[in-house]
Nucleic acid binder design. Structure first.
Lengths: 342, 342
DNA sequence: TTGAAAGCGTTACCAG
DNA sequence: CTGGTAACGCTTTCAA
């Protein structure tokens, strides 16, 4: 149904090869024919079929991105900056979501493999390296983002999660918190890394984490706000009650604050709260939220550049790990104890 | 480099056709060969090349989505629900962003056309119908969402924007506002529709819009919060100052509230504010934001169903317009005048 | 039940 | 400068 090179060639009495060459700006075409072809192309509004082209060249100029959830601003931002980085070099990004479900992720990856992408970027919901071993076996370049798999030697771009946990917790300590709880994340590398950072900060300052002070959601990165609220409920029931909470991410922190305020307590007066991610609406919240900026757009951009380097080098480059250093952002949810406690 | 049917056929001493048939569950294959093929497929972890298949079948099972900005929760939600709807029938969604730039949008659409999508869904940043006439000429089924083009007869799924403007404005009137301003949106169908709804509500209640009470951003749907803040600044300078503001969308409303509070005024005490979109974090804001729920996920889902119907019907069905009715959601940013003014 | 041949829209290679 | 031929990986058709 759509126009093909054959149509144009027939109309003009030239060969398909000539048309093809014109379209790819080959040198060895006379100005006259070039113009004739180009004119006809415009008239018919012809666009070359990239699938057919890819079949013979072996390049699709398609890069896949798999993220758990596009509604999470973190992943939306990554998608945006990644897409922008790739577009500059003519690569197109196709986005799939795994809804934080390892099975669905596998399924989506399979679909993408069928499209013969040039590369794959994944924020994986899976803790099982088998999918990635498959990808590796297929010789498809890929980059893990946000979440790494310890067993696996891969390209990786992400935050320094231990630093996130450490920065956040030490900040709580510095504003005078004595009993610091952690609403932790899932059992993946960011969840574990941030927990470790939390523990390191406590250890450095000779504080201990009381029993029950680390609480973990059943669901993973979906309905974060709800789980933050629920887990905070449990923390409030403890004795002694925490006076500071580091939450795995901002949505959880928002949920936690909600619970605290509902219980008639104040933030940061009774309990200081800090999250991570520095979402774009953190400043506009009921209690503006202190957070750790993960420089999300840089994650996407660096992942893009790394992907491009894999795509452009003809040798199989060694795997690279790129860690983005996080930064503390202080807002009202932790602005207190400097005064009240010293 | 990757495995092909030829490899499998050679390994097994059967023909490529046989392999192809097994993979598509054809009946006329003996159980024995079927099993042999399937086993080898699994061993080699083979995935059929969809591009090659598409070349001969003419179906790519790819649907394109073009949105202005994935960071805007509205479009992220649409993408999510659309993707889910299409996935059920085996269609894959590929997402592009236009960054609210008509030129970039054209460019992205061209790329997508080159991929020979089965259908296209677009929230267009363009006011120029020519791109869509092109798509129509190519015979590619497409669905406009969120923004329609008045000159163009197309499939369309979106909100009832006049109803949005009317609901919001009438609500402000009902809580006692007398001088209602509108921070309006861009010159596209939602912007114009909501403005009209605002005017209709004023007219119905015999109120007039004072000079300067409708203010419009230079930028369109990017940095909405900033433009909301700026425009509110202008409104505050007016005499008399408005006591109610309907903002085109929630980010603008958030920016407007920011400005009002910074000026030492209160919301809703001095000025009541309402937006549209009912973003997922509206409840957690400094002043929880009254809004108009556009039932975003339904927009995505209905767009998905409409797209599927275009894809599955062999005749060229008539264009359909699906309008989703909005709903008022009242929160603190407009909860006042019932008491204070009566 | 199987497979040979033709073809999908394009590009690579090489001869003229 | 131009174009014929083969090939990319797959499906369709039809004959065996």
């Amino acid at each position: 149904m759509p126009t093909t090179m054959k149509d144009i060639a027939r109309d003009l009495g030239v060969s398909v090869v000539t048309v093809s060459k014109v379209l790819r700006n080959h040198e060895d075409i006379s100005e006259a024919t070039r113009k004739r072809v180009l004119d006809r192309v415009k008239e018919l509004d012809y666009t070359p079929n990239l699938a057919a082209r890819g079949l013979v060249t072996g390049k699709t100029y398609l890069v896949g991105l798999v993220v758990p959830d596009l509604l999470h601003p973190f992943f939306a931002q990554v998608a945006k900056s990644l897409s922008r980085a790739l577009l500059k070099k003519g690569y197109c990004l196709t986005i799939s979501t795994s809804e934080e479900d390892a099975e669905l992720e596998k399924h989506e990856i399979n679909r993408l493999l069928g499209r013969r992408l040039d590369a794959l970027v994944i924020a994986s919901s899976s803790t099982n390296p088998s999918v990635f071993e498959r990808i590796q076996r297929q010789g498809l370049p890929f980059v893990l983002i946000d979440r790494s798999l310890p067993e696996l030697d891969t390209n990786y771009v992400g935050s320094d999660d231990e630093a996130i946990g450490f920065l956040a917790t030490e900040h709580l300590i510095e504003v005078g918190c004595k009993r610091i709880a952690h609403v932790r994340g899932p059992n993946n590398s960011p969840g574990v890394g941030r927990l470790k950072g939390y523990q390191n900060a406590l250890a450095k300052h000779k504080l201990k984490s009381l029993s029950g002070y680390v609480s973990m959601p059943r669901l993973v990165d979906v309905q974060s706000r709800e789980s933050g609220a629920d887990l905070m409920h449990q923390l409030l029931a403890l004795n002694p009650r925490p006076d500071g909470v580091f939450c795995y991410n901002d949505p959880m922190a928002i949920g936690a604050i909600h619970t605290i305020l509902d219980a008639g307590l104040t933030v940061p007066g009774d309990i200081a709260v800090i999250g991570s991610g520095n979402l774009h609406y953190d400043t506009e919240l009921r209690i503006p939220l202190s957070s750790i900026d993960q420089r999300t757009d840089m994650i996407g951009e660096r992942a893009g550049r790394l992907t491009l380097s894999l795509l452009e080098s003809k040798t199989h480059p060694r795997n690279r790990t790129i860690i983005i250093q996080p930064q503390l952002v202080v807002r009202a949810s932790t602005e207190r104890k400097q005064r009240s406690n010293r």
